[in-house]
């Protein structure tokens, strides 16, 4: 009888220890999930989009300026 209780106790201990170990395994690295849940990540995307759009406008204007200069030089 005592043996049986011991075995049951041991079984319970083993069960719980494995459960706690499992809980630690599933603890995943911290990610910015709050930023995604609140939707504020879109602000970052828009800001970067604006910056890139600015650089792009600059490049296009530069490109067109150079085309103009090339034409002027060739007509000379």
């Amino acid at each position: 009888m005592i043996n049986k209780i011991k075995k049951t106790l041991l079984l319970l201990v083993v069960l719980f220890s494995s459960a706690s170990a499992f809980a630690q395994d599933t603890q995943s690295p911290e990610m910015a999930s709050g930023l995604y849940q609140s939707g504020k990540i879109y602000v970052v995307v828009v800001v970067l989009g604006v910056i890139f759009a600015g650089i792009l406008t600059y490049l296009i204007l530069l490109d067109r300026k150079i085309i103009k200069m090339e034409k002027e030089l060739n007509n000379k």
Binding site: P29, M31, A32, I41, V44, V45, G49
Partner: peptide, 16 residues
Amino acid sequence: IIAGFLIKVPAQPILH
């Protein structure tokens, strides 16, 4: 820029 921020990435230790 859009997908790089919005698409799901694997959760890695240290890197996050």
